[in-house]
């Protein structure tokens, strides 16, 4: 992508917003305005992308692409949801209940399926990744926290054990903090690169 205009626009808008965030006492009303613009533009981008998705699948149906049954399902469910919502109104309780009745069991079923997949994943981790400090500590930690999370044993009545257990439960915070700081530094550099226009000037 060797287009310079988006890079320049990104740099200017980014720097202005950064300055506006820094001097919020003076720029608060303008900051809100620009963020509103961003919300509108990203919403339009989403509408454009959805329109493109539907048009692509209509084309798949027309040309009879392999697996176009999926495209029919997508277009029909999209149009049904859109037309019904337009006719009944977005705030209609029956419409919202209908959407919920379809989406919630689907998402719950997916989460349940993921639980089963995770179980099989955990069993084969040593076969796939071998034995290392990372895999051994991962395995031991998963076993320990699974045992603690199940809550079969209560340690409230034993003061010494209670302290040890509560300390053990705080151990993941150490790794999480180190990882979060590293990831945040990486993200910061990536954000700065976008502002300085380096993102598109790479080889």
């Amino acid at each position: 992508m060797k287009q310079r205009t988006p890079v320049i626009v990104a740099a200017i808008s980014g720097f202005i917003l950064l300055a506006a965030f820094l001097f919020q006492e003076f720029t608060a009303p303008y900051l809100g305005l620009v963020l509103n613009w961003a919300i509108i533009v990203s919403s339009v981008a989403l509408l454009v992308a959805i329109a493109s998705l539907v048009v692509t699948h209509i084309r798949f149906i027309v040309i009879g692409r392999k697996g176009f049954l999926y495209s029919i399902v997508l277009v029909v469910s999209f149009l049904a949801t859109l037309i019904l919502g337009w006719y009944l109104g977005l705030d209609d309780p029956d419409y919202l209940e209908g959407i919920r009745t379809v989406l919630v069991p689907l998402e719950n079923a997916l989460m349940g399926l993921i639980a089963l997949i995770l179980m099989s994943g955990a069993v084969k981790i040593f076969r796939v990744r071998g034995w290392s400090i990372l895999t051994v500590s991962f395995g031991l930690s998963a076993l320990l926290f699974l045992f603690l999370n199940l809550g079969f044993l209560r340690f409230d009545s034993i003061p010494g054990v209670n302290v040890i257990v509560s300390n053990l439960q705080r151990l993941p915070i150490i790794g999480a903090r180190g990882l979060l700081i590293g990831v945040a530094l990486g993200a910061l550099l990536m954000g700065l690169q976008v502002l300085f226009g380096q993102e598109v000037m790479r080889e």
Binding site: G121, K124, I125, V128, R129, G182, V183, G186, M190, E203
Partner: peptide
């Protein structure tokens, strides 16, 4: 993803994309 068999970037490594000799200087 670590628990799956896939290759995964850990921690901040994600922010350092370099594929072969492409993007080396950056």
């Amino acid at each position: 993803f670590f628990a799956s068999g896939s290759l995964v970037t850990l921690g901040e490594d994600y922010y350092l994309p370099s594929i072969g000799k492409v993007n080396q200087r950056a």
